[in-house]
């Protein structure tokens, strides 16, 4: 472990990968020794430098959900066009890279499908570049790929996107830091307490062990829940590879009866 003070500048890139690996390993060792299972990322995770000044230091306060917290906003076909689920047809030509279908099912903590609810995704292109002014690393922008999609889940909680497999990309958390390839997901449930934003990863990524954002989830089983599976039944002949990623939101606080009355 380094004895140097940790810079709070998230873009300082002052530490080496070895230093960050050491910090990650020390936290992992403490977690194993604790014997207490964690299922969500830590908010306070110093290897991810941007979190140093942005994590609450006091524990989250327990609240009993009431009124607005027991409901989620309603989205419909007025909000989302079906073509928004295909990220490969938003421009004049075909984007470069590995075309892929990404499917999955969203359920709540009781296993009930999250129906007709909004799913938003965003991602880098095949070269690992985002269409965002803050991303200035010298990889090509693809004029045929923005990397933003939306859909509504169906009556059984399923979502489906067509996109391009994103590339890994460098960032400035530390010297020579690279993010594993990922797709950002924004998810709503039936209760606003289930609101979640997360990142989906690809199986076998060699950058997993080196990435402080992925490793901020200290439990290896919990990290696995963010990794999609290659699914050949989703792969289509002469067209696209297929991946499946199922999502579980936290438990709802409404009874099934109340959920039923929610339907039109």
């Amino acid at each position: 472990m380094t004895t140097q003070p940790i810079s709070t500048d998230p873009d300082s890139a002052s530490a080496s990968q070895e230093q960050v690996d050491g910090e990650i390993a020390a936290i992992a060792e403490d977690y194993r020794a604790s014997g207490v299972e964690e299922t969500q990322p830590r908010l306070d995770y110093p290897p991810y430098r941007s979190s140093l000044l942005r994590h609450p230091t006091k524990s989250l306060h327990h609240a009993d959900p009431e009124t607005i917290e027991l409901w989620a906003p309603c989205f419909g076909h007025r909000d989302v066009h079906p073509l928004e689920a295909d990220l490969t047809i938003q421009h004049g030509g075909e984007p470069l890279g590995e075309r892929m279908k990404l499917v999955g099912r969203i359920v709540d903590g009781d296993g009930r499908p999250v129906r007709n609810q909004l799913v938003e995704i965003w991602q880098a292109n095949a070269g690992g570049r985002y269409v965002h002014k803050r991303d200035q690393h010298p990889a090509p922008i693809d004029p045929n790929f923005t990397g933003v999609g939306r859909c509504l889940t169906d009556d059984d909680g399923n979502y489906a996107f067509t996109t391009i497999k994103p590339g890994p990309y460098p960032w400035k958390n530390h010297r020579n830091a690279w993010r594993p390839a990922h797709i950002h997901f924004s998810l709503f449930g039936t209760d606003f307490t289930q609101r979640m934003i997360t990142q989906m990863y690809f199986p076998g990524d060699p950058l997993f062990a080196l990435d402080p954002i992925f490793q901020s989830i200290t439990d290896p089983k919990a990290r696995e829940r963010l990794v999609a599976q290659y699914d050949h039944s989703v792969t289509t002949h002469e067209w696209a590879t297929g991946y499946r990623w199922d999502i579980v939101l936290t438990g709802s606080h409404r009874t099934p009866l109340e959920t039923e009355t929610d339907e039109d």
Binding site: P41, D110, A124, V131, V148, V248
Partner: peptide
């Protein structure tokens, strides 16, 4: 009914600006 374990969250990151607003 047994509670399923929820999928973990992750940071929104710096690059949502062209996607979510």
């Amino acid at each position: 009914m047994a509670d399923l374990i929820a999928t973990p969250g992750q940071t929104i990151g710096p690059f949502y600006g062209y996607a979510l607003p």
